[in-house]
Design a binder for these strands. Sequence first.
DNA 1: CTTCCTTGGTAAGTGCCACTATCCAAGCAT
DNA 2: ATGCTTGGATAGTGGCACTTACCAAGGAAG
Lengths: 215, 215
Amino acid sequence: MRLAELSERSGVSTATIKYYLREGLLPPGHQINATTAEYDEEHLRRLRLVRAMIQVGRVPVGKVREVLGHVDDDSLGSAMRLGAAMWALPQVPEPDEDDEYVQAARQEVGTLLDRLGWENAKQLTSISPSYRSLVVTVAALRRLGYDFGAELLMPYAELMYRTAVLDLDNMEAYSSQEEERIEFAILGAILNEPALQALHRLAQEEETTRRYGFE
Amino acid sequence: MRLAELSERSGVSTATIKYYLREGLLPPGHQINATTAEYDEEHLRRLRLVRAMIQVGRVPVGKVREVLGHVDDDSLGSAMRLGAAMWALPQVPEPDEDDEYVQAARQEVGTLLDRLGWENAKQLTSISPSYRSLVVTVAALRRLGYDFGAELLMPYAELMYRTAVLDLDNMEAYSSQEEERIEFAILGAILNEPALQALHRLAQEEETTRRYGFE
DNA sequence: CTTCCTTGGTAAGTGCCACTATCCAAGCAT
DNA sequence: ATGCTTGGATAGTGGCACTTACCAAGGAAG
């Protein structure tokens, strides 16, 4: 298929597809002659993937390129590919280590990981972006006056752990069936988050109206 | 306190504070004369709040203004203020109703809400942004080839419901103690999400390494 | 009183990002 | 031969979150 058809079948304008090609989010088509290139189903699939990451996952273009680089990196094992792709996702800015709230937050998160017995996560604290995000967020909440500590976070962490177990179970269920399982796993991990967030807000609406009515 | 001190105590540059004042995110200080205005602790508090929303919650400036408008709207009951503020948060773009995947997604989400017995959420489907977000996300995942349906979402939804119950319990615990409980509740709801997301990713890292090691 | 610094306020500029519009020459279709 | 379409390159757009530069008024020091 040619550019116009790729555009039609994906619902993405040709101008935008050209932009993605330029940015390296989409491999170039098979060149037939100077003015014609041929694209296949794989291109269509990758294009939909890119769109989903950008529009649903709100992943910036540069990060998408990074994530795709890890997806296509055959030199890594599947667990590492997943980790590398997840770590490429946008993160919160660096915390200011001199800030007292940041220090207190680090302390609380450390206590939390200890109590949870998350030994592996504890080992990754120096490099894991999600650990950093958690510290920054807890610090921000404490600065605002919340008593946001290990105590309060424990039940949330346990629920999130069960969510992660579900994620990996689903991934494995796909792995045995699908060819492009790594791609699927990474996408699942990335696109799960908007779905989870939407579910969380829906649940909040449900529970709020159950408790207080519509008023 | 004057602008310079407000800047120093909040860690936000005077230029940025001026920008927030212009944008209406911060009420003007008490004007003493043509070149001096006085700010108080309430300004500092509001400024920290704005910063947390923008930097941690990634809420765009226009949305922050909207949310604050609801926070300050004395004509609404607390449940409605919370709802209005939550609905002002950034959302996914409008779905294309002619798209077959969107229709299928709508169907699946409907089934999900039925099975969960979320009657209130079901009533809000025509207006709730979180419902729309869920539909768009499910449609995007289905377009990519996932068999993302009610079946798969059920256990996630139940975990998210339990998370929402925790949210509201915490809110109520604060309500009995704090003066600015509405503000606290809305902030909790907004800033909870980054914390939850970070916890989710941490849990994924933990469980991935438990299952597959570091490789 | 004069010089100088600081203050709050305004207007314009910056850098980044995700596109989008405009050109262009080469081909293919009639 | 003529007119349309194609892929590719370059430059422009609009939005956002600030920043910079500038201004006149006010207070402080000599």
